[in-house]
Each structure stands twice: as structure tokens, then as C-alpha cells.
């Protein structure tokens, strides 16, 4: 499990798998103002990227892993 939920923030650790997408989506539906902390994330499966793009949550921290951050930023801030 790469997701840890703290009140209004979901903290992502390391790798988000394809299964996590469903969990992330559920949580975002229940928490429309939820934030995502991606700082520890090293990779997320494309399904998660898709969920993030559809939900556009606030990102409280971008991944420290620069190439990943660049792509996610491009996807979420066109």
C-alpha cells in the first residue's frame, strides 16, 4: 500500500501501483478538497496519473524525483 491518508492529505510513498488508482479515486471522490503529498513518490502507474488529471487535487508537495515531477507538473498544470 503506497497510500497513507491523513485527514485531508493523502501521502504517497515510493511506487503507486495500478491497484492504488482505485483507492486513490475513491478517496478523492470522498474528499473533494483532499490534497496529495507526492514528495516521496518515485513512480506512479499511469492509471494514477489519469485519476489525478481527472480530479485535479491540490498537490501539497511534488515528487523529489525530478523527471517524475516534471511530467506530473506538465500533466496537472497545462
Amino acid at each position: 500500500m503506497a497510500l497513507e491518508f491523513k485527514k485531508v492529505t493523502a501521502v504517497v510513498s515510493e511506487q503507486m501501483t495500478v491497484e492504488d488508482a482505485e483507492i486513490l479515486l475513491d478517496w478523492l471522490i470522498k474528499h473533494p478538497r483532499g490534497r496529495i503529498n507526492l514528495s516521496a513518490c518515485t513512480h506512479l502507474h499511469a492509471a494514477n496519473l489519469q485519476v489525478l488529471m481527472a480530479a485535479r487535487p491540490r498537490i501539497s508537495a511534488w515528487p523529489r524525483h525530478a523527471p517524475l515531477a516534471a511530467w506530473i507538473k506538465a500533466a496537472l498544470t497545462p
Binding site: A21, L25, A46, A47, L49, Q50, A54, A55, A70, A74
Partner: peptide, 26 residues
């Protein structure tokens, strides 16, 4: 690292509750 990049969806995003996370439209 690309010189330029863009990620978009091939369809409009549906309301979150109707999103099929496992149908790739990226």
C-alpha cells in the same frame, strides 16, 4: 528528458464519480 511535453486526455474527463480509472484515455 524531453525538450517539450504535454499530457492530455483523448476525451473530456467525466465527473469523478463516473471515472473509469482503468480505461486509459491518456
Amino acid at each position: 528528458e524531453p525538450c517539450w511535453r504535454r499530457v492530455s486526455s483523448r476525451e473530456d474527463w467525466p465527473p469523478l464519480a463516473e471515472l473509469d480509472a482503468y480505461r486509459c484515455i491518456l
